[in-house]
Simulated scan of single mutants.
Amino acid sequence: MPLRETLVRAGLAPALATVLDEMPHRVVNIDPRRPFREPGMPRNETMFVTSGLVAKFKNDSSGRRQIVALRFPGEGVLPRDGNASYGIQAIVKSEVLLGKSDDFDKVVEDHPELAKFFWRLVQRNESIGYEWLVNTGRRDSTARVAHLLCETATRYGLDVATQPLMNPFTQQQIADITGQTSVNVNRVFADLERQGLIKRAGREIRFLDWPELLRVASFQPGYLD
């Protein structure tokens, strides 16, 4: 999907989306089997996801991975000074558009409205980060997985009454997001099915009782606004 269209879908005015679309950039396809950017590398680039799903991750001293953020189509990773403490890896096969930070900075300087747009995105990502912190720190295993399902369906813009979620995650990736083991994630999915909240068929997840799933997950979507 063209960058302009993804940005308009993300809420940017069409004229400003055109300005960003005209910024020099290249299309890169990311293979989910290996990291696209390792932690500790310079992040002198801007990245916009046009298809797929991309994650930020960090490793502990034992090499165990924690996924700390997700970027859906229309979302991006902004440049920063120095090296980034996180790595970047695709969850599924993904396409991103990469531009140089110098080109991005000039566009934003020339169009102050863009600075306001990206500041709102930064604030939104901060709110999501706070919610994830509560999810891994205070909610039980079932609520953690249920919350991730609710957030993923909402960020994809699904009509949950009629559209299934094509689960993009492996059980290990869900474990890496929710801070538990893949064995426990498998048990949670079985529990959600037994409770009549979801129904799985391969990677397809249908939501059978969305209001109850929201309650189990303690999911209030206002932080995604």
Rank of each mutant, 00 (worst) to 15 (best):
P73I: 08
D176S: 13
V160F: 07
R138T: 14
Q171C: 03
F118C: 02
V96M: 09
L192P: 03
A175H: 08
D110L: 15
N59P: 03
I205V: 15
M41P: 06
H111G: 09
E45K: 07
K106I: 11
T6S: 14
A55V: 05
V160Y: 03
D21N: 15
S101I: 04
N83M: 08
V188N: 01
L133D: 11
G76I: 12
N44P: 01
R9I: 04
S141E: 11
N44S: 06
H111R: 10
I88R: 11
T162Y: 10
E212M: 06
S141T: 01
Q171L: 14
F189G: 03
Q163H: 07
G40W: 00
R139P: 07
A17E: 09
R33L: 11
D102W: 05
I30W: 08
L121F: 12
A15N: 06
D103S: 13
S101F: 02
T50C: 09
S51T: 10
Y223D: 12
L20G: 05
D81Q: 14
V96G: 04
G63L: 09
P221H: 03
N167V: 04
K116D: 13
W210K: 00
N184P: 05
T142A: 12
Q220E: 15
R4Y: 12
L121C: 14
V54H: 04
D105Y: 06
T152S: 04
Q173L: 01
R206C: 01
L70D: 00
Q163C: 01
E22Y: 05
N186G: 14
Q180G: 11
V185E: 02
E126T: 10
N125S: 10
A84M: 10
Q163K: 05
D225I: 07
N186R: 13
I88W: 06
L53K: 09
V160M: 02
A146Y: 06
I205C: 00
F118V: 01
Y86P: 02
T152W: 00
V134W: 09
F169Q: 00
V92L: 08
L20Q: 07
R64F: 07
S94R: 11
D191Y: 00
F169Y: 15
T152C: 04
T46Q: 09
V49S: 05
T46S: 12
G87M: 10
D140A: 05
V68E: 06
P112L: 10
P39Q: 08
A15C: 03
F207S: 00
R187Y: 09
I128N: 01
E126H: 13
D102G: 02
R71L: 12
I128M: 08
T162E: 11
H147W: 00
V19M: 04
D209H: 04
R203W: 03
D225S: 14
E193P: 08
R71T: 11
P164L: 02
L20N: 03
A175Y: 08
Q195M: 14
P35A: 09
D140V: 01
R155K: 15
L214F: 05
P39N: 09
L208H: 08
Q180P: 06
G137R: 13
S61L: 13
